[in-house]
Design a protein around this nucleic acid. Structure first.
Length: 314
DNA sequence: CGGCTTTGACCAGCGC
DNA sequence: GCGCTGGTCAAAGCCG
């Protein structure tokens, strides 16, 4: 199913089709674009409040990988994906509309997923199936929320992003020795979810997919107490959205960072996502929905690893 | 004791 | 229609 997802391969700088289930899968489709490869890409970025200059975009290449200081591990890629692609069309029409509105309306966003109760959060389904197992009535498809996926080359599986997550499931992934973990934001009013899995093709790569928008500030700090790092990091960021606690202007993104855009449906706007490998943090937020507070996320290992140019200590 | 993780089961969507 | 797979639930156990 979501096997043929096209992603940007930072290592080769070429687009490739992944046979593995990166969870992001759902959109195996057609709309895959490499970030920075077109105006559209930059538009996408700008939707997140990342203002990249054309030159900057061009500068960022696969080989411009971000060296994550901490873990020494890695590279950071972003995959922006929207809720779904054309594959889920019919219903999606409705769902997408809902999502779209959700994107523009915070209250909707949170309520939309609440609908089925918070447990059945209504969203997800990275796959075209847009499963809606929850208590939604039959015939009603779960509303998909904006999703954002990114790949991080890291040895750390559990990256901190400033939010608190509760793991609610783990599944073996087809064709992959690595399981996929499902997390939900612990904030009862927040329906954001995230999936974390390792690439079967490259075990050093962790794929994190965020879905939904946070309707609150980064509450908690990582259990591990990376607060220091985050706080410090955040202090240098410029929040454009009141709801976003951390904002990482693309313009300040280390040029080594490679971003990948994954298709996005016309109705969705991804919100945020980031991941860091072993140690890093990045946050994005959608300017498209200033109100949607979807702070992005981050990733943690050590926020300090990914630091805006000029802020790096190493 | 509260919160989180683990894990097996269940359900729904999709492809054949 | 059936089987497969992804996503979620929820009970049980663990940990601070």
């Amino acid at each position: 199913m979501e096997d043929k997802e096209k992603v940007f391969n930072p290592a080769t700088t070429t687009e490739f089709t992944s046979e593995s289930n990166w969870g992001l899968g759902a959109d195996d489709s057609d709309n895959v674009n490499l970030f920075f490869s077109s105006n559209r890409d930059s538009n996408i970025l700008s939707e997140f409040g990342w203002n990249f200059q054309p030159e900057q975009l061009n500068r960022i290449g696969p080989e411009d990988r971000l060296d994550l200081a901490g873990g020494g591990s890695g590279s950071l890629w972003f995959q922006e994906r929207s809720g779904l692609s054309g594959s889920i069309q019919p219903v999606d029409k409705a769902t997408s509309d809902a999502s779209a509105s959700a994107s523009n309306n915070p209250s909707v966003s949170s309520s939309s997923s609440d609908d089925p109760t918070e447990k059945s959060t209504g969203s997800i389904a990275e796959t075209p199936r847009s499963t809606n197992k929850s208590k939604t009535k039959k015939g009603q498809k779960r509303i998909r929320q904006p999703r954002f996926a990114f790949m991080t080359k890291t040895e750390v599986d559990n990256l901190e992003d400033g939010y608190r997550w509760r793991k609610y499931g783990q599944k073996a992934v087809k064709n992959s020795p690595f399981p996929r973990s499902y997390y939900r934001c612990t904030n009862s009013k927040c329906t954001v979810k995230k999936r974390v899995e390792r690439s079967s093709e490259d075990p050093t790569i962790v794929i994190t997919t965020y879905e939904g928008q946070h309707c609150h500030h980064t509450i908690g700090f990582p259990r591990g107490g990376v607060i220091g790092h985050e706080a410090g990091f955040a202090s240098h960021l410029v929040p454009s959205n009141p709801m976003s606690q951390f904002y990482y202007p693309l313009s300040q993104l280390p040029r080594e960072t490679s971003l990948t855009s994954i298709p996005e449906s016309d109705h969705y706007h991804q919100q945020a996502g980031t991941e860091a490998g072993g140690s890093s943090t990045v946050i994005m937020h959608s300017e498209t929905n200033p109100q949607s507070a979807a702070p992005a996320h981050i990733h943690q290992g050590l926020l300090g690893d990914i630091v805006p140019p000029g802020m790096r200590n190493r």
